[in-house]
Simulated assay, not measured.
Amino acid sequence: MTAALATPLAEHVHWAIDREVSVLPRIFDPEITLAVMQRTLSPEVVGGARAQREARFPLSFSWRGNPEGEALGDDLRKALHAPETSAALIEDVVTLAQAMAYLFETEEVGVRLRRLDEAMCPRFHCDRLPVRLVSTYLGPGSEWLPDDAVNRAGLGAPSASKPDILRVPEALDTLSAGDVALMKGTGWVGSEDRALVHRSPGVSPGEMRLVLTIDPV
């Protein structure tokens, strides 16, 4: 993830990127639509993520509840392939879910952990909710655009009459595996018309992604 850190495109920078966890509350700044904590995953977490490749069927875990109890960890252990190898991965998911609940002062979060063998949302879009946490454990991370590179008239359902969404191809930026990103959606008051534009990356044959999303409820 390098392009947006140096790009001169955006007249008003609307992202905050750092290696410290203190960057995540920057999502509450009115001008910020993307807050990213860059991090390197431990070998134990990566090992747990890689174990999901061995499962016969792709992992598609969905959960909603209070992450402060033991239910989330217990349900992950039941759902994940090779749970004995995935302890660090499970702990990481629970920690991020608890952090999301704390940051947004909610007792419930929605958690999804999926193994993807193709792009889940290949078209540029904005999420129709206030905010979402996105983190990729394996494979390429989500792609996103600075505001100045977006033609928002092209968003929504595709049609021949709509212009291309991407105005400046070289402005495309990509999150790295391990990054914890908070993305504002159209449901965030004040960001209805300027929510972050992003998409799922393409997945090459034989490649896979393991992606976590968390929504405050």
Rank of each mutant, 00 (worst) to 15 (best):
G187I: 09
W188T: 03
G156D: 04
E170A: 11
L175P: 04
L182Y: 07
V189I: 08
L155F: 10
D179M: 06
M183K: 08
A160W: 01
S200N: 04
G187A: 13
G185R: 01
D179W: 01
R194P: 14
P169F: 08
G185E: 06
V150D: 08
K162M: 08
L155R: 04
A195W: 00
V180W: 05
L196N: 09
R194E: 09
D164L: 08
G202W: 08
L196D: 04
P169S: 06
L155I: 02
A195N: 00
V168S: 07
I165R: 00
S176P: 15
D193H: 12
S191C: 14
A157D: 15
D179I: 05
L172W: 07
A160I: 12
S161V: 14
G190D: 01
V180R: 03
T186N: 01
S159H: 00
D193P: 15
N151D: 04
I165K: 02
K184Y: 03
V150W: 07
A153F: 14
K184R: 07
S200V: 01
T174H: 13
A171L: 04
L182T: 03
I165M: 05
G185H: 03
S191E: 07
R199N: 11
D179S: 04
D173L: 15
L175Q: 05
H198C: 02
P163K: 02
P158Y: 07
G178P: 06
K184E: 09
P158R: 07
R167T: 09
L172I: 14
P201L: 02
L175T: 10
R167W: 02
L182H: 02
K162T: 07
D164M: 13
R199S: 08
D147Q: 15
N151G: 02
V168G: 07
V180C: 06
I165C: 02
D147I: 10
I165L: 09
G187H: 15
S191P: 06
H198P: 05
N151A: 00
V168C: 07
R199A: 02
L175H: 10
A153Q: 14
A177N: 12
N151C: 07
L166W: 01
S159Q: 01
S200H: 02
G156T: 13
E170T: 13
L166P: 01
D193L: 13
G202Q: 13
T186P: 05
V189F: 14
W188P: 08
R167A: 13
D193W: 13
G202M: 14
L175F: 13
V180N: 07
G190N: 10
